[in-house]
Design a protein around this nucleic acid. Structure first.
Lengths: 243, 243
DNA sequence: CGACTCCTTGACAGCGTTCAACAGTAGTGG
DNA sequence: CCACTACTGTTGAACGCTGTCAAGGAGTCG
C-alpha cells in the first residue's frame, strides 16, 4: 500500500506547460508514476518537490485523530499541487487511481527565488490565489449548504473541470465524494439516487455507478443554488408519486 | 448603516508596522474609522485599497442568495485584509464594532510591483499563504467537527490570537460566531452553556455574555480534539447530576 | 418604566447519520 | 460457465444531533 518515491522513475524531458512557467527550462524534471492508493506526500513531511498531474487523480486531505477525513481538493490532469510556503505539508496527498505526475525539485522555486524573474513569482501568487479561492468557496459549501446542494455542486464542479464531457467519469469513490462534501456515503448515494429518479442525471451502468450523465445541467444548477428544499427531493410521496 | 469611505479621513502618518513592509515608506497612507456595522468593501467590488486594523474588529463573509452567511475570517488589530489578486473582492467586509484602520492604495502593491524588491513580494506570498492555511484548517472544522468541538476550537482560536488574556473579550455577537462555525446561534449558546456548567469557562457577567474566562484550557483543548462526545456534554442526566 | 436587542433555555421536528441488509461488479479458481 | 470472496454502492429503518420555533431572562437606552 505504501509506495513512496523510488529511484526507478525514468527521467524524460517533455517539460510540462504549467510547471515550466514556475521552474524554468531546466533539467530538474522527473516523471513518476504512483499506483492506486499510493501516498505522494504526507501531512507533516518536509516538502521536497512540487507536482503536476499528467494522468490520473490525486486527493489532498487531512485527518482528525479519530480517523475522520476531510479532503481539501482533488487534483486532476494539469493541476499543480504540493506547493508549500512553510516547512511542512499541510495535507496528505494520495493517488486515487494509477497516476502519472511530473515532479520538479522544490528548491528551484523558493531558495533560488531571488535570481528569478518577478513574473514567475507572480505565478506563484496566482497559484496560491487559486487555491485560496477554492478553499474559501468550499468553506461556504461545507458550512452552509445542505446535502443535496453539496452533491449538485460537486457534480457541476467535476463537469466544469473536466470540460463538460458527454459522460462525467468520476475517478472517485463515494467515500471520496463524501469526505469532500462533509457527508456520509449513504447521504451522497441518496442524493444521487434522488437526482436520477428526477431525470436530472443517469448512470452509465458500467464501472459501478461512477459514470454520470448530466441530463439537465440547468436543473442541477438550480439544486446547487438552493432552489429546492430537502423534502421536495428526498421524500417521494408528496405530490410526485401520483404523476 | 452604509458608511463608505468619505473624504474627511484625517491623514496622519504613523506608518503601521505590518503594511509598511508591503507598501514601503511612502505617503500613500490614510487613517479611517468605520462605525459599527459599516461596510468596508463588498463582494464583487473592485479592490482599491488594502487595510490593516488599528483598533476594532472586522468580519469577511459571503452570502448565499437566500441570505445565509458564511464568515470566512475575523480580522483583529494588526491583521491585514483586503488583499486581492483578482479584479474583485471575494468577500464583503464589515466592521463588527467601531473600527479604525490604516488604508493603503492598492496599486502600490501590484501595478508598480516590478519596481519593488522581491522580498516584498515574498510578503505577499506569505500573506496569501496564511489566509490559505486558515481557510484550509477551517474546511476541516466546518466539514468534520461537531458543534461543541467547533465552539471549543473557536474559543481557543480567539484566546490564541488575543495572546491568551485573562478574560477573552469577544467582539462578536452569537450570530457572528454561529456564521463562522456553520451553526445556529442556539447551538452556540447551548455549547457555551454546557462548557460553563462543566466549569470549563465562565462569563464575566457584564456586556452580555461576551467576556469569557477560560478556566480550563486543557479540557477545552480536549473537547476541541474530539475527546468527548455530544451526549457526554449536552445531556446532563447521565452520571453527573448526582455529583 | 417600556421598548429594544442579545442571549438563554425548552420542546419539538427534521435532516443527516448510523446500523443493517441487499445488490452489483470484479477477481480468483474450480 | 459457476462458486466464492471482497469490495463498492444502494436502500430501508430508526436514531440523534442540530435546527426551528417559541418563550423568557438580562442588559441597554429612551
Amino acid at each position: 500500500m505504501i509506495v513512496r518515491i523510488s529511484a526507478n522513475s525514468t527521467s524524460v524531458k517533455p517539460v510540462p506547460h504549467g510547471l515550466r512557467a514556475l521552474t524554468g527550462e531546466t533539467s530538474y524534471w522527473n516523471n513518476h508514476k504512483y499506483s492506486q492508493g499510493a501516498q505522494i506526500f504526507r501531512n507533516g513531511e518536509v516538502p521536497e518537490y512540487i507536482y503536476q498531474i499528467r494522468e490520473g487523480a490525486v486527493r489532498s486531505y487531512k485527518l482528525l485523530s479519530d480517523g475522520r477525513r476531510q479532503i481539501g481538493a482533488f487534483h486532476l490532469p494539469g493541476d499543480i499541487f504540493g506547493v508549500e510556503m512553510e516547512s511542512v505539508h499541510r495535507f496528505t496527498a494520495e493517488a486515487i487511481v494509477d497516476t502519472t505526475v511530473w515532479i520538479a525539485t522544490r528548491h528551484r522555486l523558493f531558495e533560488d527565488v531571488d535570481e528569478r524573474e518577478l513574473a514567475d513569482t507572480r505565478n506563484i501568487v496566482e497559484l496560491l490565489h487559486n487555491s485560496l479561492e477554492h478553499a474559501q468557496n468550499h468553506l461556504l459549501l461545507l458550512g452552509r449548504q445542505e446535502a443535496h446542494e453539496k452533491v449538485a455542486c460537486f457534480l457541476l464542479e467535476m463537469d466544469r473541470r473536466l470540460k463538460k464531457p458527454p459522460v462525467v467519469v468520476l475517478p472517485l469513490s463515494r467515500t471520496d465524494i463524501a469526505d469532500y462534501l462533509g457527508l456520509r456515503i449513504e447521504t451522497v448515494s441518496r442524493s444521487l439516487s434522488a437526482f436520477r429518479h428526477r431525470g436530472i442525471i443517469s448512470f452509465n451502468g458500467h464501472r459501478g455507478h461512477r459514470e454520470v450523465i448530466l441530463k439537465d445541467r440547468t436543473k442541477l444548477a438550480e439544486v446547487a443554488l438552493s432552489k429546492y428544499r430537502y423534502r421536495d427531493w428526498m421524500h417521494p410521496c408528496r405530490q410526485h408519486c401520483s404523476g
